[in-house]
Simulated scan of single mutants.
Amino acid sequence: MTPAFRALAALMALALAAPGFAHAQQAEVAFGGIRADTSLPVQVTADTLSVNQTDGTATFSGNVLVVQGEMRLSAERVEVVYGSADRSRIERLHASGQVTLVSGKDAAEAADAVYTIESGAVEMTGGVLLTQGASTIAGQKLVIDLVSGTGRMEGRVTTVLQPGGN
Rank of each mutant, 00 (worst) to 15 (best):
F21S: 07
F21H: 14
A22L: 14
H23F: 10
Q26L: 08
Q26A: 12
A27N: 11
E28N: 08
E28I: 01
V29S: 02
F31L: 15
I34N: 05
R35S: 01
R35A: 05
R35N: 00
S39N: 13
L40G: 03
P41V: 15
P41L: 14
P41M: 07
T45G: 12
L49M: 14
S50F: 10
Q53T: 14
T54S: 02
D55N: 15
D55I: 11
G56W: 09
A58E: 04
T59N: 00
F60S: 04
S61I: 08
S61R: 15
G62W: 09
G62D: 06
G62V: 10
G62Y: 14
V64F: 03
V64A: 06
L65E: 04
L65W: 01
L65N: 08
V67I: 11
V67K: 15
V67L: 06
Q68M: 05
G69F: 07
G69C: 10
G69A: 02
R72K: 11
R72M: 14
L73K: 11
S74E: 05
E76M: 05
E79I: 07
V80W: 05
V81M: 04
V81Y: 04
V81G: 08
V81C: 00
Y82G: 11
G83A: 09
G83R: 07
G83M: 08
G83N: 06
D86T: 06
D86N: 15
R87V: 04
S88E: 12
S88M: 07
R89S: 13
E91R: 04
E91L: 01
E91Q: 11
R92Y: 05
L93S: 00
L93W: 08
H94G: 07
H94M: 12
A95I: 07
S96A: 13
G97L: 04
Q98C: 01
V99R: 11
T100R: 14
T100Q: 13
V102Y: 02
V102A: 14
V102S: 13
D106I: 02
A107K: 13
A107V: 08
A108Y: 00
A110S: 15
A110G: 15
